[in-house]
Amino acid sequence: MNYNPNLTRSMMEPLVLQLVAERKRYGYEIIRVVNERTNGAFEWKEGTLYPCLHRLEEEGLIRSAWEKAQTGRKRKYYGITRRGRAVLAEKSSEWSSFSTAVNAVLFSITGSTLPSGV
């Protein structure tokens, strides 16, 4: 399914926060993990991730450091900050109540059942 690009872009920040909260990750890895977990549903242009990462870093939600991978190649790893965790929790809760509200409206009026997986 092709999602509205505006919708997927607006979800980029919480998703990135969640992924770097799990462990330190570099840009390409984030793209790869998102693709894997969404079965390629989110077709982000890879480069759009970096402005997002830099914005989050500037806001103090994540921090970066150059590190050497086991392969010997240097990559810039991003990790979440304490403030980032708080924002992530807030965004997750916001999304949870938002999606519940949207589902309640969309699916109760038409009387249809919720799609599987929601």
């Binding site: 242009k45 890879e46 480069g47 759009t48 970096y50 402005p51 997002c52 830099h54 914005r55 500037e58």
Partner: peptide, 15 residues
């Protein structure tokens, strides 16, 4: 697959 350099460039400046 990296995307449009013009758009990303301006986004990077803003970020």
């Amino acid at each position: 697959s990296f995307g449009s350099s013009e758009q990303i460039s301006s986004d990077l400046v803003a970020a």
